[in-house]
Design a protein around this nucleic acid. Structure first.
Lengths: 255, 255
DNA sequence: AGCGGGCTTCCGCCTGACGGAAACACCGGA
DNA sequence: TCCGGTGTTTCCGTCAGGCGGAAGCCCGCT
């Protein structure tokens, strides 16, 4: 079923690709089925991956991603550096609000959540660290879109937008105006665009004060507390600037 | 240089293994050198990995772990579930103390840090998420060791322990007594064992109230505030119990 | 212009990947 | 206890695809 070229390395990647958010744990036959490989081949590849530590076997015989792979991947610079720099600022924001604090990056026309802070008092969200969303669907995504290359913006504006709630803005013209506003005002309030019960406030994170936008910082809370949005703009923006400055500081010596 | 069997899948893993904490970013020739593969072979494998998104190329031509691999790996159940459950409790602890709050699991005779919370006011540490340490070297590691299988404890006690500071306990007899005490008292205070300037308080995390110990929770702060340790035992233990209970609750329905 | 280090492409040899098939392990039902 | 079914592991002959030497390319440095 998978599209990767029929090469040995490709098969390894095909197997790994099967372990997405919806299928964190799978049996050998499931993996074989989903990759479209023969059972014996799957068995060989999976065993090899397990020998190395990329996969691990649960008591019930099913397979899941192993700690060794997690370790290697946790060194991914795009997330690791960002996370390192942003966490203290996110921590401050959390303490001031006790709401969900999220950090995301753009990957093509999608949004990937890189870090999230939540406490017992925060609203439950459908997003989680490591999950993807269409970039037009979330407040943080729209902030990233507003600062993305123009041709990418056009691409997203040209394709139909999914209406998650009755409030979701799907009209390209309105969205275009929204993107303009985001660039002017920096902070963007996304009112019940993704779910009936949540409001998000989002701001761009740059590399240095005037560098390119590489991530978005957001606070998500219940729609009932929507009036809070106003008061959150200022602290959110301060945190975003703090992160941007620190990223700039770290990028200089390296580059 | 790498030990993996000379198979195509093995080469893929060899390449990934090269990206450890000390070498997050490497050039093609470096990868070839460190894996011991021919340059052309390395080139082919790396290109294939890049095509899939497991590796990405920086502006300067060097390679690093890609976002796609990070996404897949972030679904690793051993870290993901633990993280999900523990984070709110860690958050509460942070807010009460403003010190580093860490979560780690055991992997053989080593300790792997799975999550860490730190703010602007917390001490700088040499540990980081995704990094490994010998299990005998840290306070959290000793807690895990105390609850590990006896043969593993013997293995660690039999091999010489590194003295990181003049205070480090390296005598097997003393350490054995320490492990006994950990099992009795639950919470363990590790005074300047890893660095002159830090003290750690650590507690075990179980699956359910009486289940097996699967992780350790710890608070790390400056040695100058060592007297705080006493007051932190109670909240730390409460948090550890909270996480354990919640883990037990989640494990039931699944198993 | 000429040199050199690192990267990319090419191609013929041959190894190790492939998958069908058969044996095996486990479970639940009769 | 035996039987059928489902999922896993092992085996092996065939041949596709991986391998790496070598030549070509790019770019920065002198």
């Amino acid at each position: 079923m998978s599209a990767t070229r029929s090469t040995a390395a490709g098969k390894v990647l095909d197997v790994l690709a099967v372990f997405d958010r919806e299928h964190p744990s799978q049996t050998l036959s499931e993996i074989a089925q989903r990759t479209g490989m023969a059972l014996s081949t799957t068995h060989r590849v999976v065993s090899e991956l397990a020998g190395w530590g990329a996969l691990e076997r649960a008591e019930d015989g099913s397979w899941h991603v192993g700690l060794r792979l997690w370790e290697i991947a946790s060194g991914c610079p795009r997330t690791q550096i960002l996370r390192d720099v942003a966490l203290p600022f996110m921590q401050d924001l959390y303490e001031a609000t006790h709401e969900n604090i999220q950090l995301a990056v753009r990957e093509g026309t999608e949004l990937v959540f890189v870090e999230r802070i939540a406490g017992h008092r925060s609203v439950e969200l459908l997003t989680m660290v490591g999950s993807r969303f269409p970039i037009g669907s979330t407040g943080m995504g729209r902030v990233l879109l507003a600062h993305a290359p123009p041709e990418l913006q056009e691409e997203v504006l040209a394709s139909p937008l999914r209406a998650w709630t009755p409030h979701t803005v799907t009209d390209p013209k309105t969205l275009r105006a929204q993107l303009d506003r985001i660039r002017r005002e920096q902070v963007f309030v996304s009112d019940r665009q993704l779910s009936e019960s949540t409001v998000a406030v989002a701001a761009p994170v740059r590399t240095g004060r005037n560098g390119p936008v590489g991530a978005a910082l957001g606070i998500v809370f219940t729609a009932r507390g929507a009036s809070r949005a106003r008061g959150l703009r200022e602290p959110l923006l301060r945190a975003a600037y703090g992160i941007s400055d620190e990223l700039g500081r770290r990028a200089r010596p390296t580059a």
